[in-house]
Simulated scan of single mutants.
Amino acid sequence: MRERILTCAAVGLFSGAAHAQSSVTLYGVVDTNLEYMNRVGSVPLPTNLYNPGAGHSVTRMNSGGVAGSRWGLRGEEDLGAGMKSLFVLESGFQADTGALEMNNTLFDRQAYVGLRSNKFGQLTFGRQYTSLFLGLANFMPAAYAVQYEPIGVIAGPNFRENNTVQYAAVAGPVTAIAHWSFGVGITLPPTSPFAQQVMVGGNGEVPGRARGDTGYGAALIYTPGAFGFTIDYDQYNPSIAQGSGTNRRVAVAASYTFDGKTKVMGGYRWGQNKDQHSLTVLRDDYYWVGANYQLTPAFELTLEYDYQNVRNLNGSVTVANPWQLLFMAKYSLSKRTDLYVSTAYARNAGLMLESAASGYGASLLLNNTYAPANGQTSMIGVAAGVRHIF
C-alpha cells in the first residue's frame, strides 16, 4: 500500500529526501472530472433571500476531485551547520476555466518562508495550513479529496490561515506542530442571518483589536509503524460587530495498516462556536471511519463514513444530523497519472455535508454549489476524472 504523506505540510520536514545545496522546484497537480448530482439548489445568500430554490439535477465539469488543481514553487538553500532556508509559493486554479481558485489572490494555498534546523526543527512565516489540518492529514480515508470529503466541516473554513507563524519538529516517531495567526484572513459571504458568526474570520491585524481574527493551534502525531495516532487543537476568534467570537475544535484520530494493503482509520472532532456575547452559535460532534485497500499495485479503493451530530445550531437542538457515505476507486496509469471514479450519498445535508451547520463553506470556497434544494433531505453525486502530477 502506498505510503501517505503530508503533501501540504512544511516542505522537507516529514521526508528524508536528499537535496542539493540550493534548489528550486516547480511542481503541481491538474485534476479535472465530469460530475452528475441531483437535488441541488443555490447557495443561500442575501441576493436570493437565503432561499436555495427548487431542486435540479446537474452534469458539469469540475476542477479538483482527488486533489485540488495547483502549481507551485518550492526551494531551499543549505546554510551549513545543519541549517537550511526554505520557501513555498503555491497557487490554486480552476483547471476547467483557467481562473484563479481564489479571486485576487495568486498564492492562495501556501505562501511562506522559513528556516529548518536538523536539531531544533522548522520555523516558517506566511500563509499556511493549520496544525489541526496537518495533524489529521494521514488519518482521513479520502486524504482530503476535494470532491465529497467534508474538509470544511472537519477542520473549519480556516484550515489555511494568513499571517501565520508555525513551528514543527520531529523526534523519532513523534511530530509536533504549533501555529499562531495574527489574522486568519478568511472572509465569506453570509448564508443566513447567523452565518457570519460561524464562518467569517476577517483579515485581522487591526490596531486596537489584538484578539480579533487571530487563530492558533497545535498537533501531536505519533506514527511508530503500522499504528498511528494524533491529537489536535484549533481555535480562531472571528470579529463580530465590535467584539469577537470563539471557534474551537479538538480532534483525535487513529489508523492501523494490515499487511501493507489495508489501512483502516477513524476519529472524532469536538466543535464549539460562540459569538461575541459568548452565546453558542454551533455545537457539534463529528465522527468518521473508513479504509483504503490496495487491490493491486495500481488499483486502490477507498470507503468513508462521516457523521455530524449537531447538538445546537443558533439555539435549535432538534437539527437533523447530517451523514455521508463516500466511495472512491483510483487506478494509476503511471506514477504521475491516475484515473478515478468517486461517488457519495448524503442525508440531511448536501454532498460534503453542506448545510446551515457548515455555513455552506465548501460551496463558497469551491465556487460550485453543493447546497440541497428546498425540501430535500438527501443528495447523490458521481464523478469520473483524471489527475496528473508534475
Rank of each mutant, 00 (worst) to 15 (best):
R2F: 14
R4Y: 13
V11K: 13
S15G: 14
A18L: 07
A20Q: 13
V30M: 09
T32Y: 00
V40T: 11
P44Q: 00
N48G: 02
Y50R: 00
A54E: 10
N62Q: 10
S63M: 00
S63N: 08
V66M: 08
S69K: 03
S69I: 01
G72R: 01
L73H: 04
E77C: 06
G80P: 11
S91Q: 07
F93W: 10
F93S: 03
F93C: 03
A95D: 02
E101P: 04
N103Q: 15
R109I: 10
Y112E: 04
F120D: 05
Q122Y: 13
L123M: 10
F125A: 01
G126I: 04
R127N: 08
Q128F: 10
Q128I: 11
Y129Q: 05
M140T: 14
Y144K: 03
Y144P: 03
E149Y: 13
P150N: 05
I151F: 05
I154G: 03
A155P: 01
A155I: 09
A155N: 14
P157S: 12
P157L: 05
F159V: 10
V165L: 14
V165Y: 02
Q166T: 13
V170N: 11
V170W: 05
A171H: 11
G172S: 12
A176L: 11
I186G: 01
P190S: 03
M199Y: 15
V200C: 08
V200H: 15
G201P: 14
N203R: 08
R211S: 03
R211W: 13
G212C: 05
G215C: 07
A218K: 07
A219Q: 08
Y222E: 01
P224R: 07
P224K: 04
A226H: 08
F227Y: 06
F229M: 03
N237W: 10
N237F: 08
P238K: 05
S239E: 13
I240L: 08
A241R: 09
Q242C: 02
G243R: 06
G245T: 04
T246P: 06
T246Y: 11
N247S: 09
A253N: 02
A254S: 06
Y256W: 03
T257P: 01
K261C: 01
G266W: 10
Y268V: 04
N273Q: 11
R283P: 01
W288Y: 15
W288A: 00
V289K: 07
V289G: 15
Y293C: 03
P297H: 03
E304R: 05
Y307P: 02
Y307D: 08
Q308P: 02
N309V: 14
R311F: 04
R311K: 12
L313K: 09
G315S: 06
V319R: 09
V319E: 15
W323D: 12
Q324F: 10
L325Y: 14
L326R: 06
S332M: 04
S332Q: 12
L333V: 13
R336P: 08
R336E: 04
D338G: 00
D338F: 02
D338V: 00
Y340E: 02
T343F: 09
Y345H: 11
L353I: 10
A357F: 15
S358A: 07
N367G: 10
P372V: 02
A373G: 02
I380R: 09
